[in-house]
Design a protein around this nucleic acid. Sequence first.
DNA 1: ATCAGGGCTGAACCGAGGTTCATTTCTTGA
DNA 2: TCAAGAAATGAACCTCGGTTCAGCCCTGAT
Lengths: 208, 208
Amino acid sequence: MVYQRTERGERRLADKRARILRAARDLVAEGGWPAAQVDNVAARAGVATGTVYRHWSSKADLCAEIVATVSAREVGIVRAVADAGEPPAERLAAAIRTFADRALRGRRLAYALIAEPVDPEVEATRLQYRAELAHCFERILREGIMRGVFPRLDPAVAAACIVGAFMEALIGPLAPARGTGPRADRHLVEQITRFCLRASTGGMEEGA
Amino acid sequence: MVYQRTERGERRLADKRARILRAARDLVAEGGWPAAQVDNVAARAGVATGTVYRHWSSKADLCAEIVATVSAREVGIVRAVADAGEPPAERLAAAIRTFADRALRGRRLAYALIAEPVDPEVEATRLQYRAELAHCFERILREGIMRGVFPRLDPAVAAACIVGAFMEALIGPLAPARGTGPRADRHLVEQITRFCLRASTGGMEEGA
DNA sequence: ATCAGGGCTGAACCGAGGTTCATTTCTTGA
DNA sequence: TCAAGAAATGAACCTCGGTTCAGCCCTGAT
């Protein structure tokens, strides 16, 4: 045996992999999926086209990993907020605010990960993320209804409504005030939160 | 001059055009934009590929016309309901119900027209439709706020939220109860309407 | 220093799908 | 019925983007 991967070699491999992944993610963050052509990704990572295929078996694989990585982080953060111990209404507001703030920091990426269709292979991963996100809200709603602090409303439908509402208002193509600065963003998040909160509590907790 | 288009000839032309347009619309309604390949459209219309280009200068043109045609009809209907004379809360509910009922009758088409991205040339037409739809709701909200029957809330943001909410819950990929029959659909529409209404009225008109 | 063998390169390949155009078919006025 | 020209045809063409692979380069054990 004359060639053996040493630890140093291993790390070089991993670094290159990470660099490609980061390049791809950044491209998606800038121009959505259409911008993440393999040639582009390779160029941005400072690597030849073929090299990408040394680390992923197809473009779909690479994209799926982007979705999975970023999604896991975002859902984790939202879930942590959503599952904290406060009363349901406050948790709901906090979860929405958390997601909204983060989404606004990277509108294009958020849109790509939640809304923009991709080829079927990646779609599965995307939908899973979306469903998990909705599920965070559904749990809060269910609990609020059980405790009697929220009026009755099908939690699955309401959760979908919440996701749809802030998705559209925040990062959708008709999002009011696209990139008009932090002041407008703050207003936007506040309004969206109030909208969703009111829809869920039905005025039962107008103190918020 | 030896050939002149007669009225009969003119009508034949128009009929063929209409047949192609209908074929394309049906394909979109069945499988979204990806299904509307020019070859497919031609085949479905019983026409050769090249014939399509005798009536539209490009595929994008054809798609834009589909969007424009269907959209104009749908927005017209919603607007008629939204602008009727009843009190704002009822008009809002009626508008949402109207749109939702119609969208459910053709989920795939509705999704394609409102949410599914297309190439940039068609996008402009799509966004215009979307914006008009949102505007219907915005007008109701604005009036309700002015009359003091709705609590204050940025009408543009709230309108986007409403569109997003019912879009997601009705036809989005996480729509609960996809195609589970008319009973489930009725429930869905009812829940969505209640969600949006409550968000807008803030419990000020809990009689609805 | 040497060389075995894995990693990298990037030009070529390939399929998909929109568009073109030489040819054929059909319509109309004479 | 016939000629002129519009309309239809559909196979070939072109572009775009994902994928491949033969050859080069670099790593690391000797």
